[in-house]
Design a protein around this nucleic acid. Structure first.
Length: 669
DNA sequence: CCGCCTCGAGTTCT
DNA sequence: CTCGAGGCGG
C-alpha cells in the first residue's frame, strides 16, 4: 500500500470515529469519551491532514473552525418558502383554531404534534449528495442570506448524512443559544467591556450573521431541526411525527420534548405544562408550536398568505417588553446607600404591570449605557423581579440624557461619598430622614424584632408625627398616642402595642440584627450573640477581640466599633435596656444537640412549615441551614417545585431528604 | 494576591 | 434571586 493510500484510510477512519463522537456529544448530549480523548483524536486527524492537504475535504470535522471573513452574504432563493406561524395568545384562541381545523378536516379528532417554539432564528439547510451545501436564513421567507460557512461551525449540524438519505433535500430548524452559553458569553463580554446582548435570540442572530465565521465558531450555538422542507429521490414519511423520527435517524438533532398529541385535551395540557416549566428549560422558549400531524391533512388545509393553516403558535405571556425610561429616581437605604431605580412608562410583562425596576448603582447604569429617555428592554424572566436588560440604541433620538449620581442626598441634602473601588454611593448623614425611616422599618421587620402591624406605612407615620425618633422610642409608646392616626381603630392600636411588648422577648441575635449595623446580617448577628451573650459586652468589644472570632474580619469589626462609639447609638441601647429590651443569650453546648455539625439546604416549598421556620428549627437543634448547596452540605431537603439546587446536589452526590424524612430529623414526627 | 465560599443588601407586585 | 463584597485558605 502506498503512503497516500494509507493516509487516506487512516483519515477516513479518524473522521468516522470523530463524527460518531460529535454526534454523541452535540446531537445526543451523551458523550462516550472524555474531552481529552476527543481532543487527541482531533489532533491526530489534523496532523494527517497537514501532511496530506490534498485529502482535506469540506466535510472533515476539522473544517468547523470557520473561514475568512466575507464582504457580504449572498442571497439564497428558497425553493419552498419558509412560512411563519400564526399566533394565539390564550386557550380560547387555541380552541377556536382547533375547532376551525376540525371543521375543515371534517373530523372531531386528529393527531397533532406539539413542539417548543424556541426563540432563535429559523434556517434552511440543503444537502446534495449527502453533503451540506447551503445554509440560509429565513429572510423574508422566499429569499434569505447565505450563511453556510457560519452554520458549518455549529457542531450539532451534520456536515454530511448517511447514504440512505435522499440525494437532495432541505431541512429546517431553529438555531439558538442555550441560556447557559448566553450568560457565559455576556459575562465574558462584560469583562472585556463589550456591549451585552439583550437576550439569547439577539445573541444567536448576531452570531450567525457574523461576516467572519471564525467568530461564529466560538459562540455557543445549537440547533433543533423541526421539519423536512423537501426531499427528492427517496420516499419520505407521510406524517410530521414520523418525519421527525426519520430525521433523527439521519443524524439531525431533534428536540426530545416534542410530543405526539392525539386530542385537544393533550394539546392544552402540553401548552400549560410547558408554560409553567419554561423557566427551567435550557433554552428560551416563547411558546408552543402545534402542528397537524398528517402531511396529507396539512396539504388539504393549505396556507393563507404566508401562514400555514395547519399549524399555530401558542405564545407564552411575554417575559420581555419594550418601554420608555421616563426618569431615574433614587432611594436611600438604611445604611445610606443610594439606590437608583427606573421610572418606566407602565408596561405589561409576564402578566403584571411594571412601573419600576432597580438599577443598582451608577456603574451598572454606565455599563449598560442606559440613558434617561431611552427605549429599554424590560424583562421578568425566571425571577419575579423586573430588570432592565439594556437600551434599544437604534431608537435613540439624541435627546436622551446620561445619568449622574447627584453630589447631594436627594432627601436630606447631605454629602454623597463613594469609596475608591466601591460600587455604591452613600449618603454620609446618619440623621438623614430616609435612613432613619429605613432603619426603623428594618428594626420592626420579620427577621428583625418581628413587630406585626408596623410596616413601611406606619413607620413613616410614626416618625412624621414625631411619636418616635428611633426604634427604642417604640417601647415607650402609649395606646392613646396611636389613636389620632388615620384609620387606626382601638383594636388595631392595642394589637400594635401588644406586638411591641411581645418583641421585648426576642433573642439577642434578632436584636443585634435589628439594630441595622452595616455588614451585620442575620448570620453574623447570630455569631455575635453566641459569642457575647448580651448587648453591653458586645458594645464594649475592641477590634482585636472581634477579629479573633471566626467569620469576623477587619471590616465587620470596625463597622461594629464605629456603631457603638456613636453617642446616638449608645443612647438608643440605653433606652432599650431601660424599657426592658436586653436579651441574654445562654451558652448552649452546641455539640450535644442532635443536629450538631450537620449542614442543611432547603429547595422548593415545604407543606408543613415556612422556609424561615424550618431554618430556625434546624439551628435550634444545633444544625446549620445554608442557602446553597456546597460540598459540605449534609442534606438537601427537597420540597415541591425544587429549584436549581437539586441538580447541583445530584452532581455533588448530596443526600436528599423528603419533607417527611426532614420532619423526622427535626423531631417533629 | 487570587479564587472560593458565604453573607449582606436591595428588589416588584399582589 | 442576583450582585457585590467580606473572610479566609492556599
Amino acid at each position: 500500500m502506498t503512503d497516500l493510500a494509507q493516509a487516506k484510510q487512516e483519515i477516513a477512519r479518524l473522521r468516522a470515529i470523530i463524527n460518531h463522537h460529535n454526534y454523541r456529544y452535540y446531537v445526543l448530549d451523551s458523550p462516550e469519551i472524555s474531552d481529552a480523548e476527543y481532543d487527541s483524536l482531533m489532533q491526530e486527524l489534523k496532523q494527517w491532514e497537514t501532511e496530506y492537504p490534498q485529502l482535506v475535504t469540506p466535510d472533515s470535522p476539522t473544517q468547523r473552525v470557520g473561514a475568512a471573513p466575507v464582504a457580504a452574504f449572498g442571497v439564497v432563493v428558497h425553493p419552498l418558502p419558509l412560512l411563519s406561524l400564526g399566533n394565539v395568545f390564550s386557550e380560547e384562541e387555541l380552541l377556536s383554531w382547533y375547532n376551525r381545523i376540525s371543521r375543515l378536516l371534517g373530523q372531531p379528532q386528529f393527531d397533532l404534534v406539539g413542539e417548543h417554539k424556541i426563540d432563535g432564528l429559523a434556517v434552511a439547510l440543503t444537502y446534495v449528495d449527502r453533503q451540506l451545501t447551503t445554509g440560509a436564513t429565513r429572510g423574508d421567507g422566499s429569499r434569505g442570506e447565505n450563511i453556510t460557512s457560519n452554520l458549518r461551525t455549529i457542531r450539532s449540524i451534520p456536515l454530511s448524512v448517511p447514504p440512505e438519505a435522499p440525494p437532495r433535500f432541505e431541512v429546517r430548524g431553529e438555531v439558538f443559544m442555550p441560556k447557559a452559553g448566553f450568560n457565559q458569553l455576556n459575562r465574558e463580554r462584560a469583562e472585556e467591556g463589550l456591549p451585552l446582548f439583550a437576550n439569547p435570540r439577539n445573541a444567536a442572530a448576531g452570531s450567525v450573521r457574523q461576516l467572519d465565521s471564525r467568530i461564529t465558531a466560538k459562540r455557543p450555538l445549537d440547533i433543533y431541526i423541526y421539519m423536512l422542507g423537501y426531499a427528492e429521490g427517496r420516499p419520505t414519511p407521510t406524517t410530521h411525527w414520523e418525519t421527525l423520527v426519520y430525521l433523527k435517524q439521519l443524524g439531525f438533532k431533534i428536540n426530545p420534548n416534542n410530543r405526539l398529541l392525539t386530542n385537544l385535551e393533550q394539546v392544552k395540557q402540553f401548552c400549560n405544562q410547558w408554560q409553567e416549566k419554561r423557566d427551567g428549560l435550557p433554552y428560551e422558549a416563547d411558546g408552543i408550536a402545534i402542528k397537524v400531524d398528517s402531511l396529507a391533512q396539512q396539504q388539504r388545509l393549505g396556507n393563507i398568505r404566508h401562514e400555514p393553516r395547519w399549524a399555530i403558535a401558542y405564545k407564552f405571556p411575554a417575559i420581555q417588553a419594550f418601554t420608555k425610561l421616563k426618569d431615574i429616581g433614587i432611594n436611600v437605604g438604611r445604611t445610606g446607600t443610594l439606590n437608583p431605580y427606573a421610572i418606566l412608562e407602565p408596561v405589561v410583562v409576564g402578566g403584571v404591570v411594571i412601573k419600576h425596576a432597580a438599577l443598582h448603582n451608577e456603574a451598572d447604569i454606565r455599563r449598560k449605557d442606559i440613558r434617561i429617555g431611552d427605549t429599554v428592554i424590560v424583562q421578568r424572566a425566571g425571577e419575579v423581579i423586573p430588570e432592565i436588560v439594556g437600551p434599544v440604541v437604534s431608537k435613540r433620538t439624541g435627546k436622551e440624557r446620561e445619568f449622574t449620581m447627584p453630589s447631594r442626598c436627594p432627601v436630606c441634602g447631605g454629602k454623597i461619598t463613594r469609596a475608591e473601588g466601591e460600587a455604591m454611593h452613600y449618603c454620609s448623614n446618619a440623621a438623614c430622614p430616609a435612613q432613619i425611616r429605613e432603619r426603623l422599618r428594618h428594626f420592626v421587620s420579620r427577621p428583625g424584632m418581628d413587630i406585626r402591624g408596623i410596616g413601611e406605612k406606619l413607620s413613616a407615620t410614626l416618625l412624621k408625627e414625631g411619636l418616635v425618633k428611633d426604634a427604642a422610642d417604640l417601647y415607650y409608646l402609649k395606646k392613646e398616642q396611636l389613636s389620632p392616626i388615620d384609620r387606626m381603630g382601638d383594636k388595631s392600636a392595642s394589637n400594635i402595642i401588644s406586638a411591641i411588648n411581645n418583641s421585648r422577648k426576642q433573642s439577642l441575635a434578632r436584636l443585634i440584627f435589628a439594630l441595622g449595623i452595616r455588614h451585620i446580617g442575620e448570620e453574623t448577628a447570630d455569631i455575635l450573640s453566641r459569642e457575647f451573650h448580651c448587648l453591653d459586652i458586645l458594645a464594649n468589644a475592641s477590634v482585636e477581640e472581634l477579629t479573633s472570632i471566626r467569620g469576623i474580619g477587619t471590616e465587620i469589626a470596625s463597622s461594629l466599633v464605629a456603631f457603638f462609639k456613636l453617642d446616638e447609638n449608645r443612647r438608643i441601647i440605653r433606652k432599650l435596656k431601660d424599657a426592658g429590651v436586653n436579651p441574654k443569650e445562654e451558652a448552649v453546648p452546641v455539640k450535644e444537640l442532635p443536629l450538631a455539625g450537620q449542614e442543611f439546604v432547603i429547595t422548593g416549598r415545604l407543606e408543613t412549615l415556612g422556609r424561615h421556620e424550618a431554618e430556625a428549627r434546624i439551628k435550634a437543634l444545633g444544625g446549620t441551614a445554608k442557602g446553597d448547596v456546597t460540598r459540605k452540605t449534609a442534606y438537601l431537603v427537597v420540597g415541591t417545585e425544587p429549584g436549581s439546587k437539586l441538580a447541583k446536589a445530584k452532581t455533588l452526590g448530596i443526600k436528599q431528604l423528603t419533607e417527611e424524612e426532614f420532619l423526622t430529623r427535626l423531631r417533629m414526627r
